[in-house]
Design a protein around this nucleic acid. Structure first.
Lengths: 136, 136
DNA sequence: TCCTAATTGCGACTTTTTTGCAAATTGGGC
DNA sequence: GCCCAATTTGCAAAAAAGTCGCAATTAGGA
């Protein structure tokens, strides 16, 4: 994925730099994270301003997208750089697990198509109380 | 809905105040908005701090929830105070339209159930290029 | 109407995000 | 491998967003 990422940048006429690689690698290892976590982790090696610029750039390029999980705004790699999935988050313990579901996906496609939308992407977040917390 | 809202507050031992009513009425008229829009609109009649406190309270009470649309964090009334729906947002013109779909809903229920989740809620955002922008 | 707890508005403050600019770096060409 | 131009970085400063303590005000039950 790292090579694909570098190619993606170069193909867009952009440079592969240390802060960009740093942030990308962090996102690869951390599905569903926050901007402050990225700063907390990459902050020693890259300036805060560069991290914000990098995240903004990644958003524009569609490398990442935003999600709200448990009321917090989070970011994650998008489909081209991570396998397509959604999240089930527990409101009590805060953990979230990945979900993939074919039927769901085809419904979403159907809806977009019915409304005349193209180049569609989507994000879903399901929240509730997970099985473990129901017992606890 | 306004009465239901007032009852909801009083039942929770909370007071119906001007800032709270102000913010609620703005949200009723503006599906999917931002905090700064609320401040921009109610700011003359209520203090910024009170608006933040009100929004925080509404979130805790489940009166509103957060959504990300086009990279921006937005808020909207939740199901009990607005009919359950999701959004199709156009990445080009920024407009979003409401969507309701029974099949989609039952799939989401099925997924939560399969994973042992209870008291489930979900949010979905579908984005792409709308029919009008495809022509333009 | 009175009383008390809840809530507001204000102002100061912290945190988060953005911006301008000189210095440093990347990557294509030689 | 070295050079150059364009891009990108780091820094410092500022704007924007959000939080907090507290005295003054207000809602609503008795």
């Amino acid at each position: 994925m790292r090579d694909k990422f570098k190619r993606h940048l170069r193909d867009s006429g952009l440079k592969v730099t240390a802060p960009r690689t740093e942030v990308f690698e962090f996102l690869e290892k951390n599905d569903l994270t926050t901007i402050s976590a990225v700063i907390g982790h990459c902050g020693g090696r890259a300036d805060r301003a560069s991290i914000y610029r990098t995240i903004g750039l990644f958003r524009e390029l569609g490398i990442i997208h935003d999600v709200v999980a448990g009321g917090k705004r989070m970011i994650e790699l998008s489909d081209r750089f991570a396998s397509h999935h959604h999240h089930l988050s527990c409101l009590r313990c805060g953990k979230s697990e990945a979900v993939s579901d074919r039927v769901l996906e085809s419904d979403l496609d159907r809806i977009a198509q019915k409304n005349g939308f193209r180049q569609v992407s989507h994000q879903i977040e399901i929240s509730g109380i997970c099985a473990r917390c129901q017992r606890g």
